[in-house]
Amino acid sequence: MSELFEPKIVAFVCTYCTYAGADLAGTSRLKYAPNVRIVRLPCTGRISPMFILKALQKGADGVLVSGCHPGDCHFTHGNYHARRRWMVFRALLDFTGISPERVKFSWISAAEGSKFADLINSVTEDIRNLGPFDQYQQLIKETESPATL
């Protein structure tokens, strides 16, 4: 039996909603897949598509981006700007052949600890089914300076 593939997932989350949601999941003692590395940012509007690319280039198999629900942004409309950016960025990834399935977006509020745990589980399962991001990992090897996550 081959070992189960454990994907590496990077989550970029906003500090006011999703990070607080993750915190709630933790304090509520909810168990979720340990495959995700969380990076906390002030707002989803702060999440540059560069971050997502960089994560993939450093060997992540999937990326999760999450923030406040529309209308709930601490900075009033950071997440509206982010939403447009993501839509365009997703299309760009799709067009260049990087499966948009590997980059997930969601809205999770500070009260949705269980949604956070469920999401991490389902995203991990999805990425596990997709398998390792071989195409990029091959390219990383060619650079001769493979930096691993």
């Binding site: 209308g71 509206y80 939403r83 993501w86 997930k104």
Partner: peptide
């Protein structure tokens, strides 16, 4: 997606520096 055709006028808002509250979000979990 946003009915935006770049460069129609000198006062057109850049598409990624503006937003509408009802922008599509089919891809968001």
């Amino acid at each position: 997606g946003f009915d935006h055709f770049a460069g129609l006028s000198a006062t057109q808002e850049p598409v990624l520096a503006s937003f509408k509250k009802d922008d599509t979000e089919t891809f968001i979990l």
